[in-house]
Simulated assay, not measured.
Amino acid sequence: MDDAKENNMTFWDHLEELRKIIFRIALFVGIFAVLAFVNKKILFDIIFAPHRSDFITYRALCQLAEWSHISSLCPGDFHVDLISINLSSQFIVHMTVAFYAGLVIASPYIIYQLFGFIKPALYENERKYSTRVLIAAFLLFFCGILLNYYAVFPLSFRFLGTYQVSEFVENKITLSSYISTFTMLSIAMGAVFEIPILAYFMAKIGLINSGHLKKFRRHAFIVILIIAAIITPADVFSMFLLAIPMYMLYELSIVIVNKAIKTKEKKRIE
């Protein structure tokens, strides 16, 4: 949509354009969701991979244990049964996971469409940095999801799925519990990785500066360790496996905030 046409559009024209965009988004999500639904084996092979003892993360830890001669790092063989206790739960889970998969696959197109809708209302300089911020936010969110898939969820599942208060209590994890935990942690880790973007906007409106973040480095590190310990209660190694990238995000936020403030001051002088 060009700027001239945008300026001549009424409120109802904008509403009609938004309706078309929502329809296109729903269509794309629906197509990818259907494709995910019919490819059930591939979809759930990916989803259930972290619950098997031959998952790439567990194998990597065993290789690390062999190299470092620290046998406790290797999770070893384990087995956790997944069960379904409701008549319709497997079909509902299948539909829900397919929908989420369609949403994730279509997310670049969703962002493109929504940004295209608001883009004409932005100034030229705002369009440039908004595009960069959106791309960065998108990539960071997926990095968080990948970290959860390959580190946070497997280690948490292995610990909690095999933990027993007594040998008389056998662990059988429900399908809905597995999926909901996987989804919740994926969203949580994706949100955590948006810290630099949040810091950027807070710096833009003057709420924080790099001096504040540097001053509270030690406090931030303690908070990060506590959060990592809560999310991954397995052992010290898995806690630091999560805490290190989170702290790196904090340091990245300092750099981003510092750059945002300098840019803001430069524009003010000009």
Rank of each mutant, 00 (worst) to 15 (best):
G206V: 12
H79A: 08
R158P: 03
V133T: 14
A151Y: 14
F32L: 14
E167R: 09
L61R: 13
L252A: 14
Y149V: 00
T263E: 15
I85V: 13
F159T: 10
F182A: 09
Y247F: 15
A188L: 15
Y178T: 04
Y112S: 10
E124N: 08
N7K: 14
S166A: 11
A243F: 10
M246Y: 02
V165D: 05
F221V: 13
S176N: 11
T174K: 08
I197Y: 01
S156L: 08
T181G: 07
S177R: 13
A260W: 04
F182L: 11
I269W: 00
P120R: 03
V169L: 08
E194N: 01
S72P: 05
R127L: 07
F153I: 07
P120D: 03
Y250G: 06
E17T: 04
A26E: 08
E167M: 12
A203N: 05
G76K: 09
S177Q: 11
I56F: 14
F32V: 10
I179D: 05
E170L: 08
A199P: 05
V97S: 01
L87Q: 09
P233R: 05
Y123F: 12
L185G: 02
A121E: 05
L140E: 01
V165R: 04
V165Y: 08
I187L: 13
N86P: 00
P245N: 09
Y149G: 07
A229E: 08
I111N: 01
Y100K: 04
S176D: 04
A243E: 07
L122M: 13
C143M: 13
T57P: 00
A121Y: 04
S210W: 15
I85A: 06
D235W: 05
M246R: 01
F91H: 10
I208M: 09
V192S: 04
N209G: 13
I173F: 03
I230R: 06
V29Q: 04
M202Q: 10
I244Q: 12
L185A: 05
I70W: 15
F55D: 06
I269A: 11
V34D: 00
I22Y: 02
V97F: 14
K267Y: 08
C143Q: 10
I145T: 12
P75Q: 10
F138M: 11
N86A: 13
A101E: 01
T57G: 03
K128D: 01
F99T: 10
R127Y: 02
W12K: 07
L249E: 00
G206K: 12
V93W: 01
T10G: 13
L87M: 08
L18T: 02
R59D: 13
M246V: 14
D13P: 01
R217C: 07
I269P: 00
Y112V: 02
E126S: 05
